[in-house]
């Protein structure tokens, strides 16, 4: 694969946790603390998956997902990671139906859950 994984969360410890889990799978990790920073990094880099927090200080996680959806080539798949939404939250379901996110990971999660998602996305 060789592609990077982008982690977007305004909480540095959260980024640390997700990075640690992903790195065990031998994947490269880039982190962004704001929506703006995430969009900038997405435009420069080549990412296969984005782990995206739903609530960022400058914009809504789903707005970042929508921007990703408009990217022309090599669109990364988006995993929404949130403590604000719940699993069968209509907002989450709609976003999945629209195709702007591919799955949802509720905080707190087990490390296996996250690894499972990575495997299912065949990273």
């Amino acid at each position: 694969m060789g592609k990077n994984i982008l982690i977007v969360d305004d909480e540095p410890d959260m980024c640390w946790v997700v990075s640690q889990i992903i790195q065990t799978q031998g994947l490269n990790v880039v982190t962004a603390y704001t929506g703006e920073d995430a969009c900038f990094k997405l435009s420069k880099g080549n990412f296969s998956v984005v782990f995206l927090d739903a609530k960022l200080p400058d914009m809504d996680g789903l707005d970042v997902a929508r921007r990703i959806h408009t990217m022309v080539n090599e669109r990364p798949r988006v995993v929404l990671v949130s403590g604000y939404h719940y699993r069968d939250d209509p907002i989450v379901r709609n976003a999945q139906e629209e195709g702007i996110i591919c799955c949802f990971l509720a905080k707190p999660f087990s490390n296996e859950e996250l690894i499972g998602i990575l495997i299912s996305l065949s990273c």
Partner: peptide, 21 residues
């Protein structure tokens, strides 16, 4: 409540993952 849920689940998620490590 909404804001609080979000804010408490963040540290919970971090603790949970760190404990698993």
């Amino acid at each position: 409540a909404g804001g609080i849920a979000h804010e408490i689940r963040n540290p919970l998620a971090i603790c949970s993952s760190a404990a698993q490590f």
